[in-house]
Design a protein around this nucleic acid. Structure first.
Lengths: 118, 118
DNA sequence: CGAGTAGGTTACCAAAAGTTAACTAATTGA
DNA sequence: TCAATTAGTTAACTTTTGGTAACCTACTCG
């Protein structure tokens, strides 16, 4: 993963390990870097949350977005959808172990972000 | 920043601190979550890199992308562009202190990402 | 001279992403 | 009966993105 540039005797440049396809950082970002994705994971940190509650917590995100993101996260195995009861329909979303493992990084991001006073 | 849902005596839900606009995580993500942005910062970690070298390191990213991202990062104060010499034109990009401060969690992201074997 | 380097810029286009608002069906509370 | 809740879905639309490839000036190497 360490790509470096070397200069040959004629002054020509060559890259030793170019990231031919997205490297780890890029892949990670594509997993949790989508709009609202990080926020959703973060808001699930304290346990299961219901769809509409999540919707209310993330003012600014539309239901469609939240729905879409939750489905992505579910398909990636970071979130589980649980039906508490049909009639009346009640559903919660919670983090899997994998999902939970992203919290560490997200927490650091949050701290950094707040420190910069963004 | 702690948004929670409360239920009143009638069973109605209210959110106490909704993230009305993007919260810290969201803002952070928008700063470094763009395609290739994290990778660019990460590849500048060992010091100044020239434009075309960066281009070679990030196989898969086009010049246009790199150019665009570098300008964004410059405008956000995370990267500085330095002209080493005109005639022949030589330019390097390096991280500012602010840019460097992002390396800490990018490194964590990298480790996490690799651990998942993505 | 012709090719290659450096550091970009430009136009064009296709595809993806995101927003809004309306609508669903079933249930409950006033 | 009216309103609101639940968890979504859908269509229509706009915006943003990202990729390609050509072009630019200036310089050096053989």
């Amino acid at each position: 993963m360490e790509s470096t540039v070397e200069t040959d005797s004629y002054g020509r440049k060559k890259v030793v390990n170019p990231c031919m396809e997205p490297c780890a950082i890029e892949k990670g970002m594509r997993l949790i870097g989508g709009k609202w994705t990080g926020s959703i994971i973060y808001h699930l940190k304290d346990g299961p949350v219901r769809f509409n509650d999540l919707n209310r917590m993330l003012g600014g995100a539309s239901k469609k977005m939240i729905d879409q993101r939750l489905k992505e996260l579910e398909s990636k195995g970071m979130v589980i959808r649980k039906v508490l009861s049909e009639r009346p329909l009640a559903v919660t979303y919670e983090l899997t172990e994998f999902g939970r493992s992203a919290l560490e990084f997200l927490e650091q991001l949050r701290v950094w972000s707040e420190k910069q006073g963004l």
